[in-house]
Amino acid sequence: MTVPESDGAQIEVVRVFTDAAGRFGNLLGIVRRSAVENADHQALAARVGYSETVVVDEPVNGRVKMRIYTPTTELRFAGHPTVGTAWWLNDQQRPVKIIDVPAGPVEVTLSEGLTWARARAEWTPAFQFHQFEDPAEIATLDPADFPEGQHYCWAWTNEPRGAVRARMFAPAMGIPEDQATGAAAIALTALLTRGLNITQGEGSQIFTEWDSDGWARVGGRVVADHPILL
């Protein structure tokens, strides 16, 4: 028997894909499975209200199982939850090399201040990509222009250097606008078959590397935010 939500559960919060000064980024809620064993995880994520909230098992031998929820649905894979959880576990002195999500095993590494996750482009949700010629147009977009679906709007700011300006709107996931979308960054990297330096939303920074055969890496900076209690 499950209960709709879990009063008293502490949600750890980190911001993923910040800029170099620790600003911006996408909030991620992290809750230990043991704290919400009998709770409805989807209802919990809706109550938290972040673009994603994750439920994490205890790490075993450098691996950990994780489930990912938006306010309205469970995802097989998402980028900012895997990057954020990998950083958080390392910060908790429980580092892992693999995060097992429903889509498959995600390899995670920390290097020179960045946390990276390696995944397949086919694991990502289905995004509609909209390329703009003028990056200034990206700032003029309104979430109300995208009443349904999952839309990633992007433009080159410096194509030779792989620099991109982007915003993402996903009402289908209960997310009017996402501040940093690792899965979309992986999908775009696979589409273009090259590494990217993406500035998304208000100023989040996402880095990607094209691997091969549908694999890509997404990385960025993560900082701790204030935990919340439900």
Results as ranks from 00 to 15, higher is better:
Asp142Asn: 13
Gln10Ser: 11
Ala45Asn: 09
Gly49Val: 14
Ala187Trp: 09
Leu28Met: 10
Asn197Ala: 15
Ala43Val: 07
His80Val: 12
Thr18Phe: 05
Gly113Thr: 10
Asp225Glu: 09
Ser111Cys: 02
Phe77Ser: 10
Ala183Gly: 08
Thr199Met: 00
Gly220Met: 01
Pro102Cys: 06
Thr85Ser: 05
Cys153Thr: 10
Phe129Lys: 13
Arg47Gln: 14
Thr157Asp: 03
Asn38Tyr: 11
Glu148Met: 07
Lys97Gln: 14
Glu52Ala: 12
Ile30Met: 14
Leu188Phe: 00
Ile198Cys: 03
Phe129Pro: 08
Ala86Thr: 02
Asp7Gly: 11
Ser51Gly: 12
Ile138Tyr: 12
Ile138Leu: 10
Ala170Met: 14
Pro4Asp: 06
Asp178Trp: 01
Thr189Asn: 06
Leu110Glu: 07
Ala155Cys: 11
Gly220Pro: 00
Ile11Ser: 10
Thr82Glu: 02
Phe127Gln: 05
Pro95Leu: 07
Gln179Arg: 04
Leu114Tyr: 10
Ser51Thr: 15
Pro105Ser: 11
Asp213Pro: 06
Gly149Ala: 06
Val13Cys: 15
Thr109Asn: 03
Glu112Pro: 01
Glu177Trp: 01
Asp100His: 09
Leu141Val: 05
Arg118Leu: 05
Trp156Ile: 10
Pro95Asp: 02
Glu5Trp: 01
Ala20Leu: 13
Phe129Ala: 11
Pro102Leu: 11
Asp134His: 10
Phe207Trp: 09
Leu28Trp: 07
Ala46Glu: 11
Ala103Val: 08
Gly84Leu: 01
Ala224Val: 05
Ala126Ser: 13
His80Trp: 04
Gln92Val: 04
Ala103Asp: 06
Ile198Val: 15
Gly84Glu: 00
Leu196Arg: 02
Gly25Thr: 11
Leu28Phe: 09
Leu230Met: 13
Ala9Glu: 04
Pro171Arg: 13
Thr193Ile: 06
Val55Trp: 01
Ile198Asp: 01
Val31Ala: 10
Asp57Glu: 14
Phe77Pro: 13
Glu5Thr: 07
Thr124Asp: 06
Leu44Ala: 05
Val96Ala: 03
Pro81Trp: 03
Leu188Gln: 00
Arg33Tyr: 14
Ala45His: 12
Phe146Met: 00
Val55Ala: 00
Ile186Phe: 08
Gln93Trp: 03
Asn90Pro: 01
Tyr50Ala: 12
Gly29Ile: 14
Thr181Cys: 07
Trp154Phe: 12
Glu12Trp: 15
Asn197Pro: 04
Leu44Met: 10
Ile228Ser: 13
Pro147Cys: 07
Arg165Thr: 11
Gly219Thr: 10
Thr189Ala: 05
Val55Tyr: 01
Asp225Ala: 15
